[in-house]
Amino acid sequence: MVLNVRRKPAAPPAPRYRQAAETISGKYGQHLVGPIAFEERALKLEADPAGLRELALALRDDPALGFNYLSCVSGVDMKDHIQVVYHVHSLANVLTAQLRVKLDRDNPVVDSLVPVWPGANWLERETYDLVGVQFAGHPDPRRILTDDDFVGHPLRKDYLPPAYRQHGSKA
């Protein structure tokens, strides 16, 4: 922690975020893990991996929420577990939510959200490619950025790049 940084005072979230949080925890609380946290312009939810797709569908289809725009899917290797973070926007209600699932590091499997947000297609493929998360029910579960015969997942923290390797070879 650096002390001489002049920190910006954290602004409280807008009231619409509190309303949305109440809706989510009231109606769909069974899919959540832990309480809902707030940022200035984001709701932070943590979902149960088993209930992720139901929660996502509910977030999209509930008229009070209407999270219809998936912005980003990020996989992070947290060393003891792997987390997948979805950032979704609700265009009509101007809300942003950060949806997180924590997965077992040795067998990271989670439901694909392509049926909910088709834009997740390549983002999930990328997450599979670089972090190694398996998305169950993905329509096209292939690598996307690296070669098809690439070994390993480069953004895992224990990934060691070979000292010298010819492009594409398995050695």
Partner: peptide, 11 residues
């Protein structure tokens, strides 16, 4: 620790 770029062209 991790910096994920959400590239608009990619999506």
């Amino acid at each position: 620790y991790r910096a994920k770029v959400r590239g608009p062209s990619f999506v």
